[in-house]
């Protein structure tokens, strides 16, 4: 009984404590940032397929679209009256199956967005940043850092259309869907 480790057989109140606890959701991003700042890992670059979208939106904002209020509203330089119809959200998701040179994609997005804006059908558009938090109930905890991957939401367009079918047609013509990416169309509920 004089052995230094003779207590190890005795029960401890700590036996009841869980060995693992869910860390704060934001901690992962902070750890990654610290490692990156010290050059200890290679940060994942933003999804390449989003670069043309970002560049196109920047171009649209400078040339065709004007910021108004808190959002980036679609107003043409020679403002087009908003088209009749309801609002539909086009969610740009997933990596497109095909790729094109960035310059070509930027031009394609710009042409598509400008045309919508000229018709008064583009009510808003934004590219989303990579980072974020996913809130979802589950056994692993209530929240987790956003994992950027093929299924990630990359941006959105808010368009005006007379019907869901017309919104679908707009979505089908979106450069992202033409290249095999996923675009979800959801009507905005005006309630």
């Amino acid at each position: 009984m004089s052995d230094l480790d003779d207590e190890r057989g005795a029960p401890s109140p700590l036996d009841l404590l869980p060995r693992e606890l869910p860390p704060p959701p934001a901690l992962e991003a902070r750890v990654v940032a610290r490692l990156a700042a010290r050059g200890l890992l290679t940060r994942r670059r933003a999804a390449r397929w989003l670069a043309p979208l970002a560049a196109a939106l920047a171009g649209l904002a400078g040339g065709w679209l004007l910021r108004s209020g808190g959002g980036r509203l679609a107003e043409t330089a020679a403002p087009a009256a908003p088209a009749a119809g309801a609002l539909y959200l086009l969610l740009i998701e997933g990596e497109p199956a095909e790729t094109r040179p960035v310059a070509e994609m930027v031009a394609t997005y710009k042409a598509w967005g400008s045309e919508l804006a000229a018709r008064g059908q583009l009510a808003g558009a934004e590219k989303l940043k990579d980072e974020g938090i996913v809130l979802a109930a589950g056994p692993g905890g209530p929240a987790s850092p956003l994992e950027v991957g093929p299924a990630t939401l990359g941006g959105y367009f808010l368009v005006r259309a007379g019907s869901l079918a017309e919104a679908e047609a707009i979505a089908r013509d979106c450069p992202h869907s033409r290249l095999g990416g996923r675009v979800t169309v959801r009507p905005v509920d005006p309630v």
Partner: peptide, 27 residues
């Protein structure tokens, strides 16, 4: 992770090891 030093590989390692590390650190 050592083979790539890639962020995604690190995040996998982090998620596997941090729940226990966090419990220890918090206590």
């Amino acid at each position: 992770f050592l083979a790539t030093r890639d962020e995604r590989a690190f995040r996998d390692l982090y998620r596997a090891a941090t729940p226990r590390l966090w419990a220890f650190a918090l206590r």
